[in-house]
Design a protein around this nucleic acid. Structure first.
Lengths: 366, 366
DNA sequence: GCGCTTCAGTAATGCGTATTAGTAATGCGT
DNA sequence: ACGCATTACTAATACGCATTACTGAAGCGC
């Protein structure tokens, strides 16, 4: 016969004197004069497997309330394998000092949608955070505390993501992410939005339009070009390769002479892709100014996106806005679905056309 | 004899087909030919209580690596009785649509400091969030999921906070909160900052200064007035009650006539308290403009704080800035200390004097 | 070769909750 | 009054990991 020596091993003396440890289901049970299992049943409001009388139920609820009982999420998760917690992981700080680059607009939607679905958010700060414990290797494994995790930013560690996807851990990337097979993501519909901008120009009467883009192959760029071309096609305009001006350094290559040449050829409108630097748009605006032209009188300009932060407002550029909060909400919806084991898919989120003052009817030419 | 019927109760069939369950320590142990306890010892790198030969250690490590073992954080936390999680609770949405009113600047510091200390953040969205399950009564108790919790905003529910404090749950309020006995808080030192502004004016040669404030008794207002008076005292200026103009509706009561009257009496500078509406400052600026006066030529103006968002920049107001990120960081430090059971106290955080273009030497008179 | 001390590792828990098998008490029909 | 169903619970376990008491084996001094 073995004497169990109850609770002798790890006498959990409160580390801090005076701190009352959180009440457990066991305490609630004692107070209500029932078993721990009953407490669990009452509190989880399960109808299967057992029935509880209203009177007992009430006693348990009262006891729980009076003790201020709150379930231990770790234990719940361990037992039930879920937590009602969604992770938000960004490799860079979620709240950078420079608000301009922050994920704030996305989080607005993420928070709202998560709250609406009864999830709380856990922010996992990427390993890159300055200060002490930088680059902890476990940063990514901690993520699994949540039921699923949202990844933000282009620096998400591919290898680890792959693993999680392979393990079936629910993961969603905010922003297009095709290269990672099986990684669910939500993104904005740059194609349609770009086509719409072209449609707008076409409706104003423009017949020859040129796209100015940088020389890289990010999906964001490719999508815009595709939308641009589709837009031309839809408007019945010509869309040969000469309609796209691609340059590694648009600010140098897009000279006023070049611009004039296009105008002489009958081009009346230009669209620039949006990038984080805004180089294409800057180049375009710069060249117009240098050439002594004015917009929208001499030519129309449009931006396939939103103007860079430092250029906001001044001349209101025609283009489209990315509905970041909606994107965040869509990501949460998708993630929640995957947590629930569904194979849901979120459609691309539509961008909003933003009329501006940089486009107008093409100038009359003899 | 009871047949244990191993793993029969909760056949953990993968909810989603194709989901490979993560390997456990038990699998690692089997592969390495040791016990689960040994795996735990090796992986946690503990030196106490047991010793492991290098050879065994290596076998375990290899096995873990080859299986891609990742510890289950929930289990770890359950066993260790801590979460490494700090809660952030704001009664209103943490990420409001209107960035102007957000806690963002605080969160910058909160996140950084938390990351540096190895904590992750859980955002508890206050009950006020729109959408479904609005005003869930458990919102506040969920907070206990974390090891401790930060409260933001003046709407923090007093009764619940009291309970938590009484229970010894580590809690810190961001922003002064004297009325709640025993509630630790961090705040900005408005007194010193206000005094410094007065000192600045005095150094410029101003001898009579008037404070314009609203008619409430929030600590933020009281502190500023106290600092104002202390500043006068320190500068050897007169600080009778007539030096403070207090009005429930400054925008109506602060007339151009009133302003001229003060000027005639020899007042050369005015300071306004900062409030969320910015009413006092607006009233002051409005009256100056209406009176056809110009600043800083005819009189000097200073603001005890930062200008309201919509007035940013234009004329750069002399005043001081609240170092919100520092405040956030200080709050986390205090909270971390309390979680660790220390009785730490954070001093007030100093505000930064912000020179501006609204103050200058007093005008020469007769 | 007898105690005694490391050394190396294992068995047996415990953390707090969810789940399910089982049980005692009662009701009901015949 | 017996069997069976229903009601209202409780006992016992599992979840995955950390911890610690304990066990065998080997080494050491005398």
């Amino acid at each position: 016969m073995e004497e169990p020596k109850k609770r002798s091993r790890r006498g959990r003396t409160p580390a801090v004197s005076g701190r009352t440890p959180r009440p457990r289901q066991a305490e609630v049970a004692r107070l209500a004069g029932v078993s721990q299992a009953t407490v669990s049943l009452v509190l989880s409001d399960k109808t299967t497997g057992a029935t509880i009388s209203d009177e007992t139920r009430q006693r348990v609820l009262d006891a729980a309330r009076s003790l201020g009982y709150v379930p231990d999420p770790a234990a719940q998760r361990l037992a039930a394998a879920r937590n009602n917690l969604l992770g938000v992981f960004s490799f860079t700080a979620t709240f950078p000092t420079d608000v301009q680059h922050s994920y704030y607009p996305f989080l607005v939607g993420v928070e709202q949608e998560a709250a609406a679905r009864g999830y709380d958010l856990v922010l996992f700060t990427g390993s890159s955070s300055g200060g002490a414990g930088a680059s902890r290797p476990d940063a990514l494994s901690r993520v699994r505390l949540a039921d699923g995790c949202l990844f933000l930013g282009r620096h998400a560690p591919v290898a680890e993501l792959k693993r999680m996807v392979a393990d079936g851990f629910p993961v969603v990337h905010l922003g297009r992410r095709d290269e990672l097979e099986g990684l669910p993501w939500v993104g904005a519909d740059y194609v349609s939005a770009s086509a719409e901008v072209v449609g707008h120009l076409s409706a104003l009467g423009h017949r020859r339009i040129v796209l100015v883009r940088e020389d890289d192959d990010a999906p964001a760029s490719t999508d815009r070009q595709q939308g641009f071309l589709e837009g031309l096609l839809a408007a019945g305009l010509e869309g040969g390769p000469e309609a796209v001006f691609r340059s590694a350094d648009p600010e140098r290559d897009l000279t006023p002479e070049r611009l004039r040449h296009w105008l002489d050829e009958g081009v009346t409108a230009f669209v620039a892709e949006e990038t984080d630097t805004g180089a294409a748009w800057r180049a375009l605006c710069g060249a117009v100014e240098e050439a002594g032209l004015s917009c929208p009188d001499d030519l129309s300009l449009a931006l396939l996106g939103s103007p860079p932060g430092d250029l906001v407002a001044c001349p209101q550029a025609t283009g489209f806005d990315i509905p970041r909060p909606e994107l965040g909400a869509a990501a949460v919806r998708l993630l929640a679905a995957r947590v629930a084991g569904e194979e849901a898919e979120e459609p691309l989120v539509a961008c909003v056309f933003r009329p501006g003052t940089t486009t107008g009817r093409p100038p009359e030419r003899h």
